[in-house]
Design a protein around this nucleic acid. Structure first.
Length: 262
DNA sequence: AATCAAGACAACCGCAATACC
DNA sequence: TGGTATTGCGGTTGTCTTGAT
């Protein structure tokens, strides 16, 4: 158990820090088309200068189309507080009970304001680090009495959320990726996401070029993009994609929150 | 108008668990 | 059966935004 941890992010030559719209675009397009059977091989096959771990995190937490963005509703907050009292810092289990919310998001929300709110409501309970207040009579969890099994058990829960919904991507993107895969299969008989990645990395050059040209983001690498920050507005080909991307790149925090408030 | 502090969010790190060979 | 590769999870940190002074 737990042996042979992959070097992953320690690799040199990989991008780190915030994701650019181009990177997001590439990741979304690739996953929508080919899935994510192998996170480790995915970035190479998608032409991303990221480690698989980073790609997975980005997809799970921000790019998944079925994510809910915006402020937590009062009901969601109450659920988080209740579940945290029951489960402690089991963010993934709590997230399994909140469709469209991620463990990272819940964790952030908890650490920023729900912890305070919970401690205000129950001075003796909230705020304890990972200490579930199980058995606390003041913490009834009526519909979640067996949260871990009710919400995530039976093969449901998060797994259902991870199913890829249909997102209308611009056909050009698919053609680019299809073409890419075809070339890969011809070249080294490597099928993306289903086999071990081939060591040939130079094949990404034209892939990157094609996609970036197609997206109007032409540049040899992301480094050549002059600080294409998260707030840059880029024309995304599909409306649904635009929705996904805009949700990932709010123009400002207040705009983001205002646009999602209910 | 400029500066500072606090809050909020996104991303990274490292460990653990599981799957595969 | 043991070792390795990969994925998942939780904690932590870095950066940006906003509000106060």
């Amino acid at each position: 158990m737990g042996r042979g941890r992959a070097p992953c992010c320690a690799k040199v030559g990989l991008n780190r820090g915030s994701w650019t719209p181009q990177e997001d675009m590439r990741l979304i397009a690739y996953i929508q088309k080919h899935g994510h059977a192998n996170w480790r091989a995915l970035p190479r096959q998608a032409g991303l200068l990221r480690c698989g771990k980073s790609c997975r995190l980005r997809w799970i937490n921000y790019l998944r189309p079925d994510l809910r963005r915006g402020n937590f509703t009062a009901e969601e907050e109450a659920t988080v507080i209740k579940l945290h009292a029951l489960l402690g810092n089991k963010w993934s289990k709590i997230a399994a009970c909140l469709p469209g919310r991620t463990d990272n998001e819940i964790k952030n929300v908890w650490n920023t304001h729900l912890k305070k709110k919970a401690s205000e409501q129950k001075p003796g309970v909230g705020g304890s680090k990972g200490e579930p207040a199980d058995g606390d009579p003041d913490t009834p969890v009526p519909s979640l009495s067996s949260a871990s099994s009710t919400c995530a058990g039976g093969g449901g829960g998060v797994e259902e959320l991870l199913e890829l919904p249909d997102i209308d991507m611009d056909a050009d993107i698919w053609s680019i990726i299809d073409d890419d895969v075809a070339r890969l299969q011809q070249g080294d008989a490597t099928v993306p996401c289903t086999t071990k990645a081939s060591p040939e990395e130079e094949g990404n050059e034209w892939w990157l070029a094609d996609l970036e040209k197609e997206l109007g983001l032409w540049g040899p690498t992301e480094e050549s993009q002059p600080q294409a920050g998260p707030h840059d507005q880029i024309g995304y080909p599909g409306q649904d994609m635009e929705m996904v991307m805009s949700s990932s790149y709010p123009q400002s925090r207040s705009d983001h929150e205002a646009s999602n408030s209910e």
